Simulated scan of single mutants.
Amino acid sequence: MNKAIITVVGQDTVGIIARVCTYLSKHHVNVLDISQTIIDGFFNMMMIVDYSESDKDFSAMVGNLEDLGDDIGVRIRCQREEIFTKMHRV
């Protein structure tokens, strides 16, 4: 299994989850877990995904998600799980 962590942060607006999940579904990326909150109008979402079956290579997926974030006015970051874990170890 190839896991990645996707974070989405920005002003809340209609359709953020739908647009991100539509992209992932279209490219055969499975959402394993998802958490989202809205605090004082700011949207924050974290997803754990499995990209083992994706029709995009990892770097293309990262770029596509960053572009999608630009389109919908949020910041989308995607990192391999092992990199995310090492960066956020206490």
Rank of each mutant, 00 (worst) to 15 (best):
D67F: 02
S54P: 03
V74G: 02
V14S: 13
V9S: 03
S52K: 12
M87F: 01
T85R: 00
S59Q: 12
V74R: 03
F42W: 01
F42K: 07
V49F: 03
I17V: 15
F43C: 08
L24V: 05
D71I: 01
R89Y: 14
G73Q: 12
T13H: 11
G63C: 08
D70P: 01
I17S: 13
G41C: 06
G69L: 07
D50W: 01
I76M: 04
H88Y: 14
E66D: 10
N64C: 10
H88W: 10
M47N: 08
L32E: 15
S52F: 04
M87P: 05
V62S: 02
Q36H: 10
S52R: 11
G15Y: 04
T7Y: 04
I48D: 04
L65R: 07
V20E: 04
K3W: 11
I38G: 03
D67V: 02
I6K: 04
D40W: 00
F58N: 09
Q36T: 12
G41S: 08
E81M: 10
T13M: 09
S54V: 05
G10V: 05
S59F: 01
C78D: 11
D50K: 08
H88M: 14
A18S: 15
T13A: 11
N44H: 11
D57Q: 00
E81H: 10
I16P: 05
A18Y: 12
T13S: 15
I83Y: 01
K86I: 15
I16R: 04
V14R: 14
I16A: 05
F84C: 07
N44T: 15
L65A: 04
T13W: 01
N30R: 08
F58V: 08
D70M: 02
V74P: 11
I38A: 00
A4N: 05
C21Y: 03
V9W: 04
G63K: 12
Y51Q: 02
I5F: 05
E82V: 10
M46A: 13
V31I: 15
G10D: 07
K56H: 12
I5G: 08
E81P: 03
M1D: 11
M47Q: 08
E66Y: 01
H88G: 06
D55K: 02
V9E: 00
Q11M: 11
M61Y: 04
T85A: 13
G69M: 06
Q36F: 07
D67Q: 11
Q11T: 15
F58E: 12
N64Q: 14
D55R: 01
T7Q: 09
G10W: 06
V29Q: 03
V49T: 11
L68N: 03
H27F: 06
N2I: 05
V49P: 02
M1N: 12
